[in-house]
Simulated assay, not measured.
Amino acid sequence: MKRLAIFCLICLTVITACSKEGSTITSITGEIINIEKNNLNIRCSDYVTKQTNSRGSDDVGYTCVVNITDDTLIKSDNGKKITLSDLQQNNVVSVILTEEKTLTEDIDSRTLEAKDIILIED
């Protein structure tokens, strides 16, 4: 059941990311690289290369900074509310954004604000 929920969440994220002809996204799923007091750094190379229509390179690893506010809801994939301290490096999270964004190679485009963060557990 948990795998089905994860699969559905990933499918929803992909559909959302593609729904505007590759121009904007409203959610993103990625691996946590680093955790700071008010933000997460997550891998987002697949989203950047899709937006720029480039083939990508194994040498380029794009990251997105996900800002966390007092209004950001952090929860597990079963809906249980958790805290930032429950997240760890290498966890995979799905992030629902507060507004649509277009991700590019430009670092400023890869700063996002999280409405919800969902920890995807195995």
Rank of each mutant, 00 (worst) to 15 (best):
I118G: 01
D70Y: 07
R43C: 14
E21H: 14
G79E: 07
K2S: 10
T104Y: 00
K50G: 06
K37V: 14
E21T: 15
S85A: 15
E121A: 04
N38D: 15
I32P: 08
R110M: 09
V95M: 08
Y47K: 02
E36F: 12
Y62D: 07
R55L: 10
S45P: 09
V92A: 02
I6R: 10
I74D: 01
S109I: 00
C44L: 14
I74C: 00
V93M: 04
G56E: 05
R55V: 10
V65A: 14
A17C: 15
I118K: 01
E31T: 10
K2A: 09
E31Q: 12
A114T: 00
T13W: 06
L12P: 02
R110Q: 08
V95L: 07
N90K: 11
D58A: 13
C8I: 12
N67T: 06
K50P: 01
D122S: 10
R110N: 06
D122A: 04
R3D: 09
E36I: 07
G30D: 07
K50C: 06
D122R: 13
N38Q: 14
L84E: 03
N67R: 13
I74T: 03
T49C: 13
E21R: 13
E113C: 11
N38I: 06
V14N: 14
K20I: 06
I96N: 03
T29R: 04
V48E: 05
I107R: 04
T26M: 08
T26D: 09
G30L: 11
N90F: 12
L87M: 06
N53A: 12
L40W: 05
I35E: 00
D71L: 13
S94Q: 15
K81W: 02
D59S: 11
K101G: 00
D106S: 04
I42H: 05
S27D: 13
L40H: 03
I33Q: 14
I68K: 00
T104Q: 03
S54I: 12
I107F: 09
G79W: 05
Q89K: 15
T104K: 06
I35A: 03
I68D: 00
E113M: 04
T13Y: 05
K80W: 07
T24M: 09
K2E: 07
T26I: 08
L84K: 15
K101E: 00
T29N: 11
I10G: 05
G79K: 09
K101M: 01
D106F: 03
T26N: 07
L97T: 00
T52Y: 04
G79Q: 06
I117G: 02
K50S: 11
K20D: 15
D86T: 04
E99K: 08
S45Y: 05
E121P: 00
T26W: 02
S109D: 02
M1S: 13
N39A: 09
R43V: 12
E113L: 06
G61P: 02
T98E: 08
I120D: 01
E21Q: 14
T63Q: 15
I118Q: 02
T63Y: 13
T111M: 08
S23D: 14
E121W: 01
V95F: 05
R3Y: 11
M1C: 07
I82C: 04
R43P: 00
C8D: 15
